[in-house]
Every structure is written in C-alpha cells, then in structure tokens.
Simulated scan of single mutants.
Amino acid sequence: MKTGPMSFTFSYNLDEAERIGAAIGVALAAGDVVLLSGDLGAGKTTLARAMLKARGLAGEAPSPTFAIVQPYAPPETDLPVAHVDLYRIEDTDELIELGLDDYLYDGALLIEWPERLGGEGWSDALSLRISGEGDVRVLTADVPPAWEARWPLR
C-alpha cells in the first residue's frame, strides 16, 4: 500500500536559511524534483542558492526569473542541477518547450513557482512551502517516500 508524503513544519530565521538549503542540497540525487513555493520575497531563491552551493557552486547563482531555466553541470556543480523559475510562465503549453524532464536523466530540478505547472508535475517531488515575513519564516515540507530515508531536517 502506497502512503502519502510525510509532512514537516518548522520555523527558522533568515540566518538559518543557508544551513537548511545546504542540508537539502547535500541530499539531492539525480531524478529529484524540489518544488519551492511561497510569496514574492519569501526566500525561495535563497534556499535554491544554498542547495546549489552545497553541490559545489562557487559564487552566487543568478535568479533565473528572466532566463526561466538556469542549468548547472560539472565541474561547476557535482550533480547537474537546473534552477527553474516559472514566475513568467502564463500558459502551461510553454512548459513543453522547456524540456524539464530531460534534466532528470542525470540531474535534479529546483523549481520556483510550481503553481505555474498547472496539473502537470511530478508526484514524487519534494514540496517546500515558505511563509512568514520579516526575519521569521515557516517551512512546510511534504516529503515523498523517495526522500524519507535521506530527509535531513527532522
């Protein structure tokens, strides 16, 4: 019998965001999809940057808002990762052109604004929802079965 994802909710301050993102980034494996949702300014890109840094990216990753997809690959990172920002996607037909599934053969996807996927998506994705304002954020993580054994934040 297949069960649904485990759910974890915890508060953190902005100083802890890098540690949280790094812990998740270290656990990333080829085929993983991480969905990052939250309001503008919630800290989605901050967590994604920390995940990329944990995979070896030196320097700061640019926000992919205008490029939509920003790919990283060895030697820049130790795992191919595509950082995706769907904020500017208005129609799900535009998603086909992005070829996101292609990144999953040997890498991972970090997707900001996953609401723009419509009904499309990955049932085994790690879903991270960020809320809160000021210095305090609340992270709600829906951890799918594929992540349960390696989920770093308990």
Score class of each variant (00 low, 15 high):
Arg116Asn: 06
Ala29Val: 10
Ala146Thr: 14
Gly59Tyr: 04
Leu47Ala: 03
Ala146Pro: 07
Ser123Gln: 09
Tyr72Thr: 15
Arg88Tyr: 11
Asp93Pro: 03
Thr92Ser: 13
Glu97Tyr: 14
Asp39Pro: 04
Lys44Asp: 00
Met51Val: 04
Ala23Phe: 00
Gln70Leu: 07
Gly43Ile: 00
Leu98Thr: 08
Gly4Pro: 03
Ala141Asp: 05
Thr46Glu: 07
Gln70Trp: 06
Thr65Val: 12
Thr77Tyr: 07
Tyr87His: 04
Thr3Lys: 13
Ile130Asp: 01
Leu95Cys: 08
Leu139Asn: 02
Val81Gln: 05
Pro71Cys: 05
Gly31Gln: 09
Ile20Leu: 01
Ala61Met: 08
Ala141Gln: 06
Asp78Tyr: 00
Lys53Gly: 14
Ala54Trp: 04
Ala141Gly: 08
Met51Pro: 02
Met51Glu: 01
Leu14His: 03
Tyr87Cys: 05
Tyr72Phe: 15
Ala82Glu: 01
Arg150Val: 12
Asp78Asn: 01
Glu18Lys: 03
Met51Tyr: 04
Glu133Lys: 02
Tyr12Trp: 10
Leu98Met: 02
Ser127Ile: 10
Leu52Phe: 11
Asp85Asn: 14
Ile130Val: 05
Ile89Trp: 07
Leu79Gln: 11
Ala67Leu: 13
Ala108Thr: 10
Leu153Tyr: 03
Pro62Phe: 06
Glu16His: 10
Pro145Ile: 00
Leu109Gln: 04
Gly59Glu: 03
Leu126Arg: 10
Gly38Val: 12
Val81Ala: 04
Asp85Leu: 13
Asp15Gln: 09
Gly4Met: 02
Leu57Gly: 12
Thr9Arg: 10
Glu60Val: 15
Leu14Asp: 01
Pro75Arg: 04
